[in-house]
């Protein structure tokens, strides 16, 4: 019993290794334990799982970066092949709910709100199918999209709807669907970034793709308890491990420095002088682009 407790503690500590170090890390490394035993991951508290799911980056961050880099919008990156009427399993519905959520973020960010109505309808259908439609504020989002009014309100209501769905699923013992939704969001965001970077080799964007190594283990951690659920789950677990393998030799190092604070207009502006540096070869990046495309397309096409 004691040994079990120690194992759980070690896993928890290694999983959160990048968060609570007392000495300053100079390089990001994956936790020592490469694969987390299913039986142990299942014992992690709901709070720990909630914490992980909340800190996965928002899909609008990638879209915002593309917008700031003046990358033109492209309809071809969207998962237009998804037909919510053709999906039979909750696995398919939940992961596509995530994928379309990322697409909605992309459309909203570029203010392509007319095009977002089709995506919205699909999202509503999927949400209703997995009995979380009550949390998706379809009418408000549709109204804000049509009016092309306040982008911030639109982002707030869209993100808030997804947060409510995620919370509800986790609180009602349907954590597997929450995990799928979050993974769907991440895969689509990663697909968007890698597709753009394959055409526009921008250094900032390349770095952002490489930096995904930082949250990849957390993402895998969400799905681990369900890897033996059925073939769909085990296949996705395998896919994420394949992505992780591609990231294994990418180096992320940190330089040291103290933040600089300036008071301005009643607020405070803090500029960080510490930096993160990504070392990634073209071959490594190509490997990530390729694996992401294959996995995402399989998920989207496999209706």
């Amino acid at each position: 019993m004691k040994l079990k407790g120690v194992v759980i503690l070690i896993i928890a500590l290694t999983s959160f290794a990048c968060r609570n170090l007392s000495s300053k890390p100079t390089e990001f490394v994956f936790p020592e334990i490469d694969t987390i035993p299913v039986s142990e991951a299942q014992k992690l508290s709901p709070e720990a799982i909630a914490d992980i799911s909340k800190n996965i980056s928002s899909p609008v961050e990638i879209a915002n970066m593309l917008l700031n880099l003046d990358i033109p919008f492209s309809q071809s990156y969207l998962a237009t092949s998804v037909d919510p009427n053709k999906l039979s399993t909750n696995f398919d519905k939940a992961i596509k709910l995530g994928i379309l959520g990322a697409d909605l973020g992309y459309l909203n960010m570029y203010e392509k709100t007319g095009s977002s109505l089709d995506v919205l309808s699909s999202i509503r259908k999927l949400a209703e199918d997995i009995k979380v439609g009550q949390f998706f504020d379809f009418e408000s989002i549709k109204r804000l999209s049509k009016n092309k009014s306040n982008l911030d309100s639109l982002l707030f209501i869209s993100i808030d709807s997804y947060t409510k769905i995620d919370n509800y699923l986790r609180e009602n013992d349907r954590g597997q669907l929450s995990a799928l939704m979050i993974i769907g969001v991440w895969i689509e965001g990663q697909y968007l970034a890698t597709q753009v970077v394959s055409k526009v080799p921008n250094k900032m964007l390349m770095d952002r793709v490489g930096e995904q190594k930082i949250i990849l283990n957390d993402l895998i951690f969400l799905l681990v308890p369900y890897c033996n659920h059925d073939s769909e789950y085990s296949s996705l677990c395998k896919n994420l491990q394949e992505i992780k393998d591609k990231y294994h030799d990418i180096r992320i190092t940190f330089t040291q420095g103290d933040p600089v604070s300036v008071e301005k207009d009643g607020g405070l502006t803090v500029t960080q002088t510490e930096t993160s540096v990504v070392e990634m070869s073209k071959e490594q990046l190509d490997g990530i682009i390729e694996i992401t495309k294959n996995i995402r397309n399989r998920l989207v096409i496999n209706n």
């Binding site: 990001f28 800190n55 930096e211 940190f254 405070l268 803090v270 960080q272 510490e274 993160s276």
Partner: peptide, 14 residues
């Protein structure tokens, strides 16, 4: 107390 803070992030991480 400040009602808001702007943070220019230069180091990706948790």
């Amino acid at each position: 107390t400040y009602p808001y803070i702007d943070f220019i992030c230069q180091k990706s991480g948790m």
